[in-house]
Design a binder for these strands. Sequence first.
DNA 1: CTTGACCTGTAACGAACGTTACATGTAACG
DNA 2: CGTTACATGTAACGTTCGTTACAGGTCAAG
Lengths: 189, 189
Amino acid sequence: MQTRKEALVESLIACLLERGLADLSLRPLAAATGTSARLLIYHFGSKEGLLVEVLEAMQAQLRQSFSRLLQRPPAKGPAKPPLKLLWDWALAPKNFPYLKLLYELQVLAVQNPDAYAQYLQRNAANWSGLVLALLPAQERDPAFATLCVAVFDGLFIELMSTGDRKRTTQAIDRFIRIVGDARATRADA
Amino acid sequence: MQTRKEALVESLIACLLERGLADLSLRPLAAATGTSARLLIYHFGSKEGLLVEVLEAMQAQLRQSFSRLLQRPPAKGPAKPPLKLLWDWALAPKNFPYLKLLYELQVLAVQNPDAYAQYLQRNAANWSGLVLALLPAQERDPAFATLCVAVFDGLFIELMSTGDRKRTTQAIDRFIRIVGDARATRADA
DNA sequence: CTTGACCTGTAACGAACGTTACATGTAACG
DNA sequence: CGTTACATGTAACGTTCGTTACAGGTCAAG
């Protein structure tokens, strides 16, 4: 029964989602959550320990939300393509900030692996696997799966940067249509 | 004739390409370029001024390299699709670190616009336009152009993160093939 | 009431940050 | 030689960083 710390973790998650990971420091973080830097160190041992625990908790929440997506009964009407399902899920207000933070983490780890790569192994590594879980089995050859993940990643980044929800959604619809058309051609051959 | 400063800018570009933008500080940067923090402030006025000038110079170099790509006489053999041409260009050792830095800049600006967005306007904004310049005119409708940029962005990020050059290149080849197949289907209809 | 485990505030540490003051070197020009 | 403009080294400023020392609260158990 450590409701103290758990409540603190919840506040910290909210803060990280707002502020991102770069230029993160204890005192402003503590002020924003109504505590003090002293308390954060007391509860988490160090800044690094705090990040480990908070990012871990974040990932758990995200994974839970994702598993709800997988288990959701198929909506009535025409079945959505998996990639579209994923896109709508990612754009939901509840999930969007989480994914934003994941992408920041991923890019920070590229240039600064010593500081950030440790958190990635528990997050983005799983993330890519989660996306694969949505693809039907016959489409899981490496090239196509990589392409699907890349389309999602690229459009998500474009959305984060420009905020143009309409255009990016049209683009992913276009991709889905193109894939369908291409399948038709191959089937004819 | 300011060869002093110009040489300094060249060294700084090399350093930024290695170290990235996050957690960048003057003293280590100065040590790596053989000068002192005092000198950097003297020449650029402030850390922010340094970033403005150095990133500006970087972008100039990158744009020059890109314009060489556009003007290159078509290689013999079957013409490469534009996206493939761009991919090979981005993977060239000379260009790769520049693009890496651009992506870091873009993602940092998402969570921390006050600090980084100013540099983006002169860089990534142009970058997206440059990609468009490679597409044939009939494919420049917003949805498809956005999709192409996203495929490139997503695969490039995947490449940065995993280093798997083979798989990402296969994925972009797959995309090009799929687009071709889809065009055939539409043509039949 | 006392003990002891958990929690929290105040104040400070040493280090690194961006920046500045001040003095000095260099070299071209009168 | 003296002046002037540019270039550079040394040392410090004030601030913020992560972290710690120390003292004190709170509150159930004995």
